[in-house]
Design a protein around this nucleic acid. Sequence first.
DNA 1: TAGTGGTCTAGACCACGCT
DNA 2: GCGTGGTCTAGACCACTAA
Lengths: 242, 242
Amino acid sequence: MNAKSLLRLPLYEQIKLQILQRIANSEWASNELLPSEWDLAEQFAVSQGTVRKALTDLVNDGVLFRRQGRGTFVAEALDDWAGMSLVTPGLLHEKPDRLAREFLGISRAHASEELAALLGLRRGASVHRIRMLWRQQGQAVALDEVTLPLERFDTLDARWLRQSAGVWAVLQQHFGVRLRVAAEQWRAVALPREEAQLLQGREGDAALFYLRVAEDMQGQAVEWRERWCLTGSLGLTRLQQD
Amino acid sequence: MNAKSLLRLPLYEQIKLQILQRIANSEWASNELLPSEWDLAEQFAVSQGTVRKALTDLVNDGVLFRRQGRGTFVAEALDDWAGMSLVTPGLLHEKPDRLAREFLGISRAHASEELAALLGLRRGASVHRIRMLWRQQGQAVALDEVTLPLERFDTLDARWLRQSAGVWAVLQQHFGVRLRVAAEQWRAVALPREEAQLLQGREGDAALFYLRVAEDMQGQAVEWRERWCLTGSLGLTRLQQD
DNA sequence: TAGTGGTCTAGACCACGCT
DNA sequence: GCGTGGTCTAGACCACTAA
């Protein structure tokens, strides 16, 4: 998608990449204070206005946040729910419960033609296939099947998935990759047998099927995720933010 | 939400408001070319950089778009689907069919306490209640129930709704109000009897229930919408854009 | 009071689209 | 070639936060 690698990027784009890299390399951790705009301008040998432009872009991307009078900070990476939450139906601004994660397993598979095209892989390329369950107050509420390109994440370790806060957290911590939603789709489906068993629901019950493609900060598609949600007493909610 | 009316706004915020106003008053129509940044700077008696900041914000809000070497243009207002579309399940980048609209009716109702709070109304305030049906190739695929504050849109005419492209188009054309999504929620539900009849589906079938609050460009919540979608052979899709 | 981000200016040059 | 938006600079002052 972004094949303009060697085309001579604007200074502020180069600065964005360098800042993203430093975050990826854990030189700057979440909630850490960045140097001031003037310091950064000196480091990068550009004007403060150019640094400001780069920072503003990253703030809009959700990578950084600013506090007037205090400074610019690294934002928390999004979790596997990417700003969405499960709350009481009809109530949009409710404070959601924290979901518990249960790692079910990881296996290898081969990308279908369609998936390969979406993730920019060779047809039939190897992929990781991860399954996990989400619980709210002990009750299973969502089942995820996550597909990642094996080549890019070849050192992915099942233990990381078992211990960490989710796939996005693992990619952030171990590969320096921060994801954001690129495309998504919702459907109401009758719950299939296998998913019904895992979710402890009844086969044929109405379930929310959520499909999502996530990309890295350079716009390269990285993750394909399918999610079955039992929304009987819940709603999948997102509040827009500017 | 935005009660900083008289607090002395920055110049670029004042310019944004004036530009939005001119669009609302149809002084500038969709796809129309705006004066150049330098012209606007002269009109508003500010520097070109300040105009640029205002235009950049409006571009990010989806109100304007720029074409290097050509100029800055007014963007089309979003339709009632707000960038979402119904496409073949699993295919995210498919070119969607155009949906046909069928206006079912408009009536008056009173806002529940919750609704009044969300839309910033008195409890029990009067509201418009609009129902409409969406068809794809003749087949009913979605049913909308839209709630608008009556006071703000007291001259709303059913004929406009019958003839126009949807509620958002009517609000744009007749009230100069452009909407954007503020919060949204999805659920899978068993289709209720009344909705099943209107959608020509079977009661109890799995349906996608979509709930949305929309706000104007000043952040004032304006619309509450409930939508039942028959997604049996369709997926409700959105592509993220920057 | 010092240091940070936020706003605003004036001016320069580049990249692109059109004619 | 001209006019547009796109990038970049240098400098000024304001508003907020924290010590």
